[in-house]
Amino acid sequence: MKKIRALVACLAVAGALIVTAPAVQAAGSCYQSGPQAGYGTTYTCGIWRSNHLWAMYGSGNFHGLDNITGVLNAGNSWFICQRKTVVKLEYGSIKNDWFAYTLGDNGYWGWVSATRFSAGGNWEPVPGLGYCPAGFGETDTYPGDRPRGGSRWNIPGPDGESSVRIN
């Protein structure tokens, strides 16, 4: 009987620990992280393959300026926010029109397609990554963009997308 009581007590303690344990992030989803590059709130997310950053702005207009300058390596990276764009990318069976803003590993600012994130579904925002405030990215002078003059947009895209469409 003592053994049964001891077992019940252990199970009760274990159950209490399980109930009070902090929630774990879903595999591959983003999580809020510390300040970066003057932004108070950033998000850390997993990128499944190295890619190039796109320099684009405006919700009504797409400016394909120098979309192959910035580079972001695979692994964990931090991001400012995400927004839906007029650019629709397809990489095999992965399709998305959401992009996230960050500073590339080589010092250029730009947008990373949601097709490169380790979590998320087709035509959906990246889970756990905050949304850009209204007006963010509406001009060519937002934080750090350095497009080179005379550059042309590469189709089907710098990272081998099977399809790039501008809505």
Rank of each mutant, 00 (worst) to 15 (best):
L17G: 10
A114H: 01
C81H: 09
S151E: 09
N67R: 15
G92C: 08
C10Q: 14
L72E: 02
L72W: 00
W78G: 06
R152Y: 12
G120Q: 10
Y131N: 08
V126Q: 02
L11F: 15
N106H: 09
W54M: 11
Q32S: 03
T115H: 01
K88T: 13
Q36G: 01
N154M: 14
V13S: 13
L89E: 05
G157M: 05
N61R: 13
W78I: 02
G137K: 06
A14W: 15
W153E: 05
Q25K: 08
N67P: 15
H63F: 11
V164G: 08
A12R: 14
N51S: 08
S29H: 09
T41W: 03
N154L: 15
Y57C: 11
G64T: 07
G104L: 07
L103P: 02
F117Q: 00
I155K: 05
E138I: 02
G92P: 04
R116W: 01
S29P: 07
H52L: 12
I18P: 04
W109K: 06
P156D: 13
G128N: 05
E161P: 03
K88S: 07
K88P: 01
A14K: 10
I47L: 04
I166S: 04
N76E: 04
R165P: 04
I94W: 01
V164S: 09
S163W: 09
Q36W: 02
L17A: 10
G149F: 14
G70P: 03
Q32Y: 02
N76Q: 07
R165C: 03
W54S: 09
T20P: 05
N96D: 13
Q82P: 06
A119Q: 05
Q32P: 05
L11Q: 12
N106A: 10
G150D: 05
K88G: 02
F62Y: 04
V13W: 12
Y91C: 11
T139L: 07
W111D: 00
W123P: 03
S59Y: 09
K88L: 06
T44F: 00
G38K: 12
A23Y: 09
M56E: 06
S163Q: 13
G107P: 04
K95T: 03
P35F: 04
A26Q: 13
V13F: 15
F99R: 02
Q36V: 09
G58F: 07
A16G: 14
K2V: 15
P125C: 09
G144C: 10
I18N: 10
Y57D: 11
F136I: 02
T69D: 00
A114N: 01
